[in-house]
Design a protein around this nucleic acid. Structure first.
Lengths: 249, 249
DNA sequence: CGTGTTGTTGAACTGTCTCAAGGACGGTGG
DNA sequence: CCACCGTCCTTGAGACAGTTCAACAACACG
């Protein structure tokens, strides 16, 4: 289905960059040196469209935060999922008519492999196969959680779910709380949570008024992490997932 | 994560049934006769809970329609996805705290393999691996489409998306239209579409009033299929997916 | 120091949710 | 055969929450 084609100029200009890829370490030469795919560095807001017609690929996120966007004709775009360091994204998942694209939310680094090449590698390299399977499972679970979150009617709960997700992925604990960057814009978050940006702004204001969260210049501080988790119906599964995630590395 | 444990008595009572499984055909003996898993026949409404603690499994749907349910404590259950003939479901996708279960919407037949066994088979049997990969990709795409559908604010559009999905999977064309069974109850559909059952009922009534659809005894007749597709924002991706589905077999 | 983008907020509107009442079946038992 | 029951579905009235539109503030950028 999807095929890569960068919308912005020079997506490969840094392709020779020396990357410290986690995926690279477990690989040993077999016959011909195994191809771990093309390195694709992305600047913030740079996008990669899945153009129909070309072959399927697999993207590995080696650094940064990347949004998977979809867009129906005449409709507001949607943020279908968020990819983090270590995630995998097969373009097969993108229906052609959904005009899917990967968009860097922070400066990011991907690796791109042909679908076939990835399958071949999985066949030859058990360690590679293991990592891919683990990454797929994590992504599958995260998608389930996101769906469950979106399905709840309450906007406030969805926002809390999102903040817990971000906090777990990008945050560091501070005294009795947690602190993390919020790389997504309000519109990004709204499109991820299937909410109107105006509504989302109100929800943020409400949380700020309740002293659940403080935000300045894209940096969020949650004074009482436990309280936020109580507000998020899916904090349980999210914490569980984040533990599983960490146990892979 | 998830582990199988049937809630109803005798889930295996028909285990010796001679099944005409598609998955069985491409398998050839290698060392020891390959284990294609335990056959699990399900009566309508029978459920299989993923109990935490036991090992991961992979379920293959060989017949029928099966719902994947999730439930948060104190909350209404959710229908996370619908599985059809040929689908695959790895219990890894079910977060432990989501109390996930498979529920037969019609009488159904599953096959259950240990996660490890499935991986081993994939390693040995390229044809098996190919089928599993194709089924996973189809499921991934369907999940993406479902998420995109749920994310739209309009209930009417979500219902139209659902009807197109069912029509494509279970329907036969009739003169200038389409006809199919609706195995899900109103509540099932509501939980799948993240809508209130009352609201869903109103939406159905509205569609009936518009002569978009007629329903009698669980059988739906859509006189003007094209019109329904125009109402469904995701009919494009759904049709595309259904074609891909058919090309696998 | 404009200019454009991004975020906030109010007022009115629209659609969903909730609750409650009642209808339509389908089964059971007298 | 009919009365009774449970379950599933439908429908109305009112409450509630998200959406829309528009105005404006905050901020970054050139």
């Amino acid at each position: 289905m999807g095929a890569p084609s960068s919308d912005c100029p020079d997506p490969f200009e840094h392709a020779k960059l020396e990357l410290s890829l986690k995926m690279q370490q477990p690989v040993h030469d077999t016959a011909s040196s195994p191809n771990l795919g093309v390195a694709v560095p992305l600047k913030k807001h740079q996008r990669i469209s899945m153009t129909p017609g070309a072959g399927d690929h697999v993207y590995l996120v080696t650094y940064g935060v990347v949004l998977v966007e979809g867009k129906l004709p005449e409709q507001r775009r949607q943020v279908l999922e968020i990819l983090y360091d270590g995630d995998i994204y097969p373009t097969q998942d993108a229906p052609e008519f959904l005009a899917t694209a990967l968009v860097a939310s922070t400066a990011s680094e991907l690796r791109r492999l042909k679908q076939q090449a990835a399958e071949a590698l999985s066949g030859n390299q058990p360690e590679f196969a293991r990592r891919i399977a683990a990454a797929s499972a994590v992504r599958g679970t995260r998608r389930t959680i996101h769906l469950a979150s979106i399905s709840r009617p309450s906007g406030e709960e969805r926002l809390a779910d999102f903040l817990v997700e971000m906090g777990l992925h990008l945050g560091r604990p501070v005294v009795s709380g947690r602190m993390f960057d919020l790389p997504l814009s309000r519109d990004d978050i709204a499109d991820y949570l299937a909410l109107n940006p105006d509504t989302l702004s109100r929800l943020f204001s409400r949380l700020k008024a309740k002293r659940m969260i403080a935000i300045s210049q894209g940096r969020a501080t949650v004074a009482d992490w436990e309280a936020l988790c109580r507000l998020s119906p899916l904090s349980g599964p999210l914490v569980e997932l984040s533990k599983r995630c960490r146990s892979i590395e």
